[in-house]
Nucleic acid binder design. Structure first.
Length: 716
DNA sequence: AGCACGCCGACT
DNA sequence: GTCGGCGTGCTC
């Protein structure tokens, strides 16, 4: 070890650390060249490993650089890897005031590791404070955070902000309960309904790391099935983590875990628990007192010790997408965790995303599915009402309520509650074929065509090219129509049509958890459907057009997922359960609903995405900023050679007032956006290029900010 | 981002 | 000579 860089503990006999700055001050006055490293001669430093490598928590500024600090002797014991520290961080060589050296202000950081010496050639400042001896940042969590930062071209500090909850001293003071010994292996329960279900549980219980995409049968059993997978993993002596989309799902899995495991074996991590309780639960997990976790998306980082299983429910739900930078998706984070910890992976849903299908198609995960007979036995009968039916149906055109729907509701109400799903308001209409309703796409890059004012040319939402002579590649038609919105009124009319029956509503403001099994009309927006005791007798899914006409790539998948989520609450067709969907029966998502084949739908969708160069087969990133800032960024970034830049296109100007959209430019500023697309396998190269350019831009003080978003959710 | 350092023109 | 303009670059 070199005494040149000082921090070797060699100078313990000299001046106290505060005087270091004075020493350096006099050195400077003596005009010794500054390049020569000076020593911390005289500082009372830790005798072993006197250097602390620290991640300074200061936004995007540093982009994953560590800074070395000297460890004063009195902090030696507490300054362990993983603790929160405070350090002085600021410009210049520091001023001297009252005999103390003062850099910038005190800022927070994490102690990453202790070293014998630093590779930094200047003098080291001392750690100012160890905030608490609790080692919150484990090596695994750091590795995961780093992988997530790389995947999303974000900074480590940003990811750690998502991964480590704010400290609460009171929560730290309390001792966590003593860990319980592993439970015995559970029964397979209803996992026997799936072809390889029992084998999957067996593998978990014997320490294996199976990976599966699980297409769950409709009905309420899924939460118990998840709980049994957790129990099997615990019985192997390992920990397990379950991430679900919302508080209602957490409550279901929580109850199932209590039923299967008993009290005290699992923690619940949700954002709405309040900071102290949340940190207390998190600490119990970190300390190894609790080995099983269920929670919403922030729990994806839960520091479960000796992780044996990560499980995710309903990855198509967009609440799995973290809104804070760098906006990681729970599915991708859990994929990274499964790879890093070599643990089992379970991705379950009633429906199926293209990403899930890709995991199976690529061979990374196996399918966990029930036989067609099983599906037919538990799924409701699905019927459709398309345009032709509506055209023939004069009464329906007036009331917008088709006869078939009317009959299904009336018949259903004789046997129990009937669910009516109405879409939420607020999606942008885009252009589709007026004849067959296929979305109108750009012939160059397959982006969505956006309608201008009537008469004006169509323009691509991705590359900005005009389309002067569009015709439909599906049916040859060349009439366009904007997709229409609006359905709440239909439900109100429905309520008036059945005056003897109570109408209950469940939506954003007021979400019902369950409804009794008595006849009632239950009007709900997607995602807010209450569970009915004994299942709904029937469900009516209104305005499929609105759902399918949504601008983004996932319109079909999303519509199917929402329909299936509602239909999964309906009794099986053997028990008379019926679903009526008002949508064209020739459309692919509608057919998939009728056949109850979400996996087949996702597989076909995946094939198409591969052909068109869409994610998740290729990877995309969106970069946005003012025209000037964007141009500057694009001229500086060294993209992988395969990368394709689409655009720029102007973004809609954010207007003041009303709810601010996440990811929208500052109010009143005209921003532009490009999409960058790379082929399979080049995602990491793309992310690293974008990150490097961002970092260089910060250092060079480039004009204006650009936002980088890997896996943009709204690509048309 | 702050903040100090440094290399140029007008002042006691 | 030296006080201080803001252009550059660093922060352990």
């Amino acid at each position: 070890m070199s005494s040149e860089n000082g921090v070797t503990g060699e100078g313990a006999e000299g001046a106290p650390p505060e005087q270091l700055a004075l020493i350096r001050e006099s050195v400077r006055k003596a005009k010794v060249p500054r390049a020569k490293p000076r020593t911390w001669r005289g500082a009372a430093l830790a005798k072993q490993l006197p250097v602390a490598r620290v991640l300074v928590d200061k936004g995007v500024l540093h982009l994953d650089r560590y800074f070395d600090y000297a460890v004063p002797e009195e902090l030696d014991a507490d300054a362990q890897p993983g603790v929160r520290v405070r350090v002085r961080f600021g410009a210049g060589r520091g001023r001297v005031r009252d005999g103390r050296r003062e850099g910038g202000g005190l800022i927070d950081g994490f102690l990453i590791e202790r070293l014998a010496e630093s590779d930094y050639s200047g003098p080291l400042a001392a750690l100012a404070q160890v905030v608490s001896p609790e080692r919150v940042l484990s090596e695994e969590l750091l590795g995961l955070a780093r992988a997530v930062a790389d995947r999303y071209a974000g900074s480590l500090a940003d990811v750690l902000q998502l991964a480590v909850p704010p400290r609460s001293a009171r929560a730290e003071q309390r001792p966590s309960p003593a860990p319980l010994p592993p439970p015995g292996a559970p029964q397979a329960g209803s996992w026997g309904r799936y072809e390889r279900g029992s084998a999957f549980l067996e593998s978990l219980a014997t320490g294996g790391a199976p990976r599966a995409v699980w297409n769950a049968l409709p009905g309420p059993e899924w939460s118990e099935e998840l709980a049994r997978a957790v129990a099997a993993t615990l019985s192997s002596g390992r920990g397990a983590l379950v991430v679900v989309p919302d508080g209602r799902a957490v409550a279901r899995v929580d109850a199932a875990l209590t039923a299967v495991l008993g009290e005290g074996r699992h923690a619940v991590l949700t954002a709405d628990a309040g900071p102290e309780k949340r940190y207390r639960e998190w600490l119990a997990v970190r300390r190894g007192a609790v080995r099983a976790v269920v929670g919403t998306r922030a729990a994806m980082f839960a520091p479960v010790q000796d992780l044996g299983l990560v499980a995710l429910w309903d990855d198509g739900d967009d609440s799995h997408s973290e809104p804070h930078a760098p906006q990681p998706h729970a599915r991708e984070v859990l994929l990274l965790r499964a790879a890093q910890d070599k643990c089992a992976f379970l991705l379950g849903s009633w429906s199926c995303t293209v990403e899930a299908a890709q995991l199976v198609e690529s061979g990374w995960a196996g399918p966990l599915v029930a036989s067609r007979e099983q599906v037919r036995a538990v799924a409701p009968l699905v019927r459709t009402v398309g345009d032709q039916d509506l055209a023939r149906d004069e009464a329906a055109r007036a009331a917008r309520l088709p006869t078939l729907a009317w009959q299904a509701v009336r018949e259903g109400l004789r046997h129990g509650p009937v669910l009516v799903q109405v879409p939420r308001r607020g999606y942008v209409p885009r252009m589709a074929c007026g004849n067959c309703r296929a979305p109108a796409r750009c012939r160059h890059c397959s982006g969505p065509l956006e309608g201008q004012e009537s008469g004006a040319a169509l323009k691509c939402g991705w590359c900005g090219r005009e389309e002067p002579a569009w015709h439909c590649p599906e049916c040859g038609g060349f009439r366009l129509r904007a997709q229409v919105v609006g359905a709440r009124r239909t439900a109100e009319e429905l309520g008036r049509a059945f005056p003897a029956v109570p109408v209950r509503t469940s939506g954003r403001e007021h979400v019902l958890d369950t409804v009794p099994g008595a006849p009632a009309l239950v009007v709900s927006t997607p995602g807010a459907e209450p569970v009915a005791e004994g299942g709904y007798a029937a469900a009516l899914l209104l305005d499929g057009w609105a759902m399918l006409g949504r601008p983004d790539l996932r319109a079909g998948e999303d519509a199917l997922r929402r329909w299936i989520a509602a239909a999964a609450l309906v009794r099986g067709q053997g028990a008379g359960g019926t679903v009526v969907v008002v949508a064209e029966p020739t459309l692919r998502p509608v057919q998939a609903l009728v056949r109850w084949d979400p996996v087949g739908h996702a597989v076909r969708e995946l094939g198409e995405r591969a052909e068109l160069g869409f994610p998740p087969v290729s990877r995309m990133a969106a970069v946005s900023g003012t025209g000037e800032a964007l141009a500057g960024f694009l001229s500086a970034v060294e993209l992988p050679v395969e990368a394709e830049v689409l655009g720029p296109v102007p973004l809609p100007v954010t207007t003041g007032g009303g709810p601010r959209r996440v990811g929208a430019p500052p109010v009143g500023e005209q921003w532009e956006r490009v999409l960058v697309r790379v082929p399979p396998g080049r995602g990491a190269a793309l992310a690293s290029a974008l990150k490097a350019a961002q970092a260089a831009r910060m250092a060079a003080r480039g004009e204006g900010v650009v936002w980088v978003r890997v896996d943009p959710p709204d690509i048309g």
